[in-house]
Nucleic acid binder design. Structure first.
Length: 126
DNA sequence: CTTCTGACGAAAT
DNA sequence: CATTTCGCCAGAA
């Protein structure tokens, strides 16, 4: 694992909890990792080692779209393959594919109790 | 130390 | 809807 920002490891273990067919926003991820921001999560995704097994393609922006860059088509292809539906405007319907949060095991390891989680989740899109 | 560049986001236009 | 503006901040040069 590449050693960069101190919150990268926590970000990666959290993103690994997102199951096939579901997506989360950079903001959602950052809301669960203390000390991180949506921007940092973006940097973390850009730095994911190819062999780390982190499903980086399941993290999109808060508008429900895939951020434009080189390789964004590859991300779109992966999500299509997982059954994630996009509207004509290229957006994902949070109602159908939004991730609902990590396992309690993860929350515990992050020092968050269930009440904290519910408060955080109430501010998620959708 | 300074500068520049973003896989971001929210609000305003 | 699309664009712009501003706040934010890590990491590379």
């Amino acid at each position: 694992m590449i050693r960069t920002h101190s919150t990268y490891p926590a970000i990666y273990t959290l993103v690994k909890e997102i199951p096939c067919g579901e997506v989360a926003s950079y903001k959602m991820v950052s809301s669960l990792v203390k000390g991180s921001t949506a921007r940092i999560v973006g940097s973390a995704m850009a730095a994911v080692p190819s062999d780390a097994g982190v499903p980086w393609h399941r993290v999109i922006n808060s508008a429900g779209k895939i951020s434009v860059r080189e390789g964004s088509q590859r991300q779109r292809d992966r999500l299509d393959a997982e059954g994630v539906a996009f509207t004509k405007g290229g957006k994902v319907d949070w109602k159908n594919h939004r991730w609902n949060g990590p396992s309690e095991t993860w929350l515990e390891s992050a020092g968050l109790d269930f009440i904290d989680f519910l408060t955080i989740q109430s501010n998620w899109p959708g």
